[in-house]
């Protein structure tokens, strides 16, 4: 029968080994030739867009890369589906945008801020999401056909 000492060795050993593998895989994933995000394309404008995204907790309603709150639409590939004109109108709206009765906070963004957020979405749209992009992207495209 397993002794307490063996049980402790199993805990410590298992933890150490899996943790080292985890660190190794993390380093591997972030090595340059494994980049799927087009990291070099992150401009200052994209970063400003990301800052706005965070400062207003957009993830508190929307999802992006499938992460967020499921109250408002996924915004990965939103430019594909809606086009930049629509997105800009929503962002700059002085009154709550209300499609099908669900209200969005009226952020009343400036022209520049809207452009920053659109640059951010544009960068997001080019990320290789291991197939998830095909699940969220063709929604509107298929409909148009």
């Amino acid at each position: 029968m397993l002794s307490k000492k063996q049980a402790r060795a199993f805990f410590l050993g298992g933890t150490l080994v899996t943790f080292l593998i985890f660190i190794g895989l993390t380093i591997y994933s972030f090595s340059k030739d494994q980049d799927q995000t087009n990291y070099g394309a992150i401009t200052e404008q994209v970063v400003r867009g990301k800052d706005l995204w965070e400062a207003n907790n957009c993830m508190g309603c929307h999802t992006i890369l499938g992460e967020g709150a499921y109250y408002a639409p996924e915004l990965t590939k939103v430019l594909d589906r809606r086009g930049p004109g629509y997105v800009k109108a929503v962002l700059m709206s002085p009154i709550p945008w209300e499609p099908n009765g669900r209200k969005m906070v009226a952020y009343n963004f400036s022209e520049d801020e809207a452009a920053d957020l659109i640059a951010f979405f544009d960068w997001i749209d080019d990320i290789d999401l291991n197939g998830f992009e095909t699940v969220v992207s063709p929604l509107a495209k298929d409909k148009k056909k």
Partner: peptide, 23 residues
């Protein structure tokens, strides 16, 4: 022990579709 053995590398289930390696 079982928690860490499965849980640490299990973090990978958040990494499927956020733009990192297929591994």
């Amino acid at each position: 022990g079982l928690t860490f053995l499965s849980g640490i590398l299990g973090t990978g289930h958040h990494y499927y579709y956020i733009g990192v390696n297929k591994i």
